[in-house]
Nucleic acid binder design. Structure first.
Lengths: 203, 203, 203, 203
DNA sequence: AATGAATGAGAATTCATTCAT
DNA sequence: AATGAATGAATTCTCATTCAT
């Protein structure tokens, strides 16, 4: 079963349809979880016919694969935006805090989507996709951290790029899922964990 | 819709059937993911009729809930076993490494199951279950860390006890879910993250 | 894709369901052709739920395969009945005519079913089925012709046994599939072809 | 619903498109059977847009009808070619053998297509088409056989034109579908059947 | 004339659940 | 208690056809 998209639309109308479908899929999973993710619901939410969905995605799994790719691209974009915004920050801690805030926002709004993607990444043969993402994310993190090489000499950026998001996510989850959510505590703990992780190399 | 099991048999043949069903469910999710998890397949794999499955579980979600609880209990048991075995360890790092290994044991070849449970915990109303598990796991971790108060003075054990299990779990996931799984890397990174998190308080 | 039935029902209720489904499938194809043959229509006509149909047949093709087998068995039964009834016929021509009539009986009002089965036999991997049928039909024909060895000396019964059923079938089809079906013409032509084929050896 | 083509282009690019569509349809049915025959697949294989297909054929059935006609014309052409090539043959047997060879080649390569057309001829209202074809084929056969009138006095050419191809086809199938295919045997048996059929009138 | 995006009815198939035995 | 046949709503996916460009 092919996981690639059926056709990759170049022009206006088609591109809009393609995007609307992915957006709808993300919205449904984020709001109701994998169990509510079905192609009819996606098409309806996207405001297109079910036939149109299958013009672009040969099957449900290929839609999921495209969604995974889209999330990785979004993640990457967020990361790059953060990288640019904090270009002038002086201290590692402030850089890390910005990173954590960016990641937190992303994950808080997409709890179910993130875990769904985790699961589906493990189920579907999307290894190449994943590697490519890690490569790129690693490059961005590398740039962000290189100014602080003296503080964190032993970090390998590509490795850190995989560990850091997971770390932020789990610590965030642990505190944000409480009732009431303890968001400040979440941020503190996440910053603490990341800094600790980064600095330990210098021990 | 009730999530509790219809009846929780304590012994005998009924208990064996109940366990076989849960075992079958775990096996299917671990092998093929959430998408392949359906009651007919579970019953067949368990070697019981579909009718029998519904004798013990009023619906599919209750089966998932029981599976979550089962995994938590197994996790806890592993943790406690680890706690006992490392009672004599002298260094914090060795304790942490043992902890991480215990956590990872459940993810070896079970990445799909672990991520499925992650996802379903967020979807199903199993807060109480989750809190109770975190409470207990936290208590165990707390005891383990008590002896090293001098090394990690700024850590509040109860807070750490909540953050740590989540942290170990997610970092492990991040590396174990790759194909092929990078289990050694996972262990290194998890140990590094935990130690960093713990020690930073002393800066 | 498996072509075998999913389960072969042994007991009353299940057997009746299985048969009703095959009967309905035959009825629909015979009446409206392959284009009208769909699983929903078959289930409805059979008076069972669509789910029940899929309990017994894993997919549409397996239903078709079962139908092919059923038709072959019916054909064979008719042939054998004919063989018994004409045990006392004196002339070769009368024997041949009985044979032809037996073969034609299945095509009366079943032209669409017969041509559908022809087509599907060529499309589906049912070689084994077909060979087995030809073998059995051949054996019956062989017995029928044995008595006339002196009239058709150059015929090798085993060879004739393979050629004849095919010959009768196709000539019948050619004339019975017209609209309106020319059944008398079909019989004449089939008899003529068979007799001609058999006797030519003596030229 | 009209079965005639929307327009029957006589020349130029339009004619080429029209032919490409029919050719694609034939190719798909011959290769994968009626079940794989759909307008989108035909358009793609023909290298034209689905819109263009509907410029020439108002609906799917009209495409099938045109295909039936095309096959009849091809059959006729083959027949006529054979008729010319064997103009000088002296014996009936050699004429028949040439005919059989021509028919065999045609049918062996188009097994699925031939049976599909059989089925669709029975389903669609194409009686007029069929009659017209039989008329013409009958004329050709008549010419071929008239030199041998003394050998086969009772044959009606129009009748023979319908019976003969069916006869050749089925005998061919019966022997060519074996493993390994017995093509020489197929030819022998077909010639024998045809000669027998033709000569019996003289009995 | 041609294109191809879009449609949506409908066909194939699945699966949670019930219930008669 | 257990069975497994049966159900049918829900889901995936197809394909004939239309129509704006």
């Amino acid at each position: 079963m092919s996981l690639g998209p059926r056709k990759t639309p170049k022009q206006g109308r088609a591109r809009a349809t393609y995007d609307a479908i992915l957006e709808a899929a993300a919205h449904i999973i984020a709001g109701q979880g994998l169990a509510a993710f079905n192609t009819n619901a996606v098409a309806e939410r996207a405001g297109v016919s079910i036939g149109s969905l299958y013009q672009y995605f040969p099957n449900k799994d290929s839609l999921m694969a495209a969604l995974i790719q889209r999330q990785q691209e979004a993640q990457l974009a967020t990361l790059q935006a953060a990288a640019e915004m904090i270009g002038s920050e002086k201290t590692l801690e402030k850089v890390v805090r910005s990173l954590v805030r960016a990641a937190m926002q992303h994950h808080r709004e997409n709890d179910l989507l993130a875990s769904a993607i985790d699961h589906e990444e493990a189920r579907l043969p999307v290894d190449a996709l994943l590697s490519s993402y890690l490569e790129k994310a690693g490059a961005v993190v590398e740039v962000m951290l290189e100014r602080f090489q003296h503080e964190i000499p032993s970090i390998m950026p590509k490795v850190a790029a995989r560990t850091l998001p997971a770390l932020v996510r789990s610590v965030t989850d642990a505190w944000a899922n409480l009732r009431p959510p303890q968001l400040e505590k979440a941020e503190e703990e996440a910053v603490r964990a990341v800094l600790g992780y980064l600095r330990i190399g210098g021990e």
